[in-house]
């Protein structure tokens, strides 16, 4: 079984987001960038499948500018075998990302695609679902448990009501929740080793996908700030305020 993992480079989740003063977007220059958090879970799961002898090869793919090589190196330091950077200067919409991944999937012929459930920058939560529909492969979204036996795939997915259990078969597209596993830290020796693993760079134009944006961002603004509240001295005061000032209880 060959496993392909989609990895996006995003502003680190700990960074305090700043909106650009011209309201054209969010400041991404000189801020810490990282692997999109749930994509780390996808990487971890792929590496585990390899360790269990279920996966024969693991590939990480990122679509972005040259700098996205760093998240691919991280993926390989965590244990991914090889990676591909699809180079573009543009920010692609989920539909275009899925179409690009599809081109690579036609070439690499993986049996399983693992991705994050959502990119924490655009918060779209779309790409895996779109890819599954384009490939006509089964979809398993927001998974917190995965078991593979032969071609059989058993998943638990997190839904608003609780957990949904499904059984499907390979090939499949699965999107990971943070609760799927605990991503490992890349050890220093593995970081060194990852430098020698293959990283192919291809230009997005060579794939012949239509990536024209369909959506125009008119402006990006800061969210309204909540006005400062008060500290209460004790429970009595709190309950009184909730009852007679805020009138919510």
């Amino acid at each position: 079984m060959k496993v392909l993992v989609a990895v996006k480079r995003v502003v680190d989740y700990k960074v305090q987001i700043r909106v650009k003063s011209d309201n054209s977007g969010v400041e991404t220059q000189n801020v810490k960038m990282s692997v999109n958090p749930p994509d780390e879970n996808a990487i971890e799961e792929a590496v585990k499948l390899k360790e269990q002898g279920l996966a024969s090869e693991t590939i990480a793919v990122s679509i972005g500018d040259e700098k996205s090589q760093d998240v691919l190196r991280t993926s390989m330091a965590m244990g991914i075998d090889k990676s591909i950077l699809v180079k573009t200067q543009n920010t692609l919409e989920p539909l275009a990302v899925a179409k690009t991944l599809m081109k690579l999937i036609e070439k690499e012929k993986p049996d399983l695609v693992l991705m994050g459930k959502q990119a924490i920058d655009d918060d779209s939560n779309q790409t895996g679902q779109i890819l599954s529909a384009l490939l006509k492969w089964p979809q398993g979204c927001f998974i917190s448990n995965l078991k593979i036996e032969g071609k059989k795939v058993s998943i638990s997915r997190e839904i608003d009501e609780g957990i949904e259990n499904l059984e499907t078969s390979l090939p499949a597209v699965l999107t990971c929740d943070l609760r799927l596993n605990t991503p490992r830290f890349a050890s220093l020796p593995n970081i060194m080793k990852a430098k020698k693993k293959p990283l192919d760079i291809i230009d997005i134009d060579s794939l012949g996908v239509d990536t024209t944006p369909r959506i125009k961002t008119l402006k990006v603004i800061e969210p309204p700030k909540r006005k400062a509240g008060v500290m209460v001295s004790d429970v009595k005061e709190l309950v009184k305020k909730l009852k007679y000032e805020a009138k919510v209880i």
Binding site: P94, Q126, Q129, A133
Partner: peptide
């Protein structure tokens, strides 16, 4: 934009070749 809608509508986006706007 519940887990129901998030699971479903992007597939419609794929079938229609239209970019969905989330949330």
């Amino acid at each position: 934009a519940s887990t129901f809608g998030k699971n479903l509508l992007p597939r419609v986006s794929a079938l229609l070749d239209i970019t969905q706007i989330s949330d």
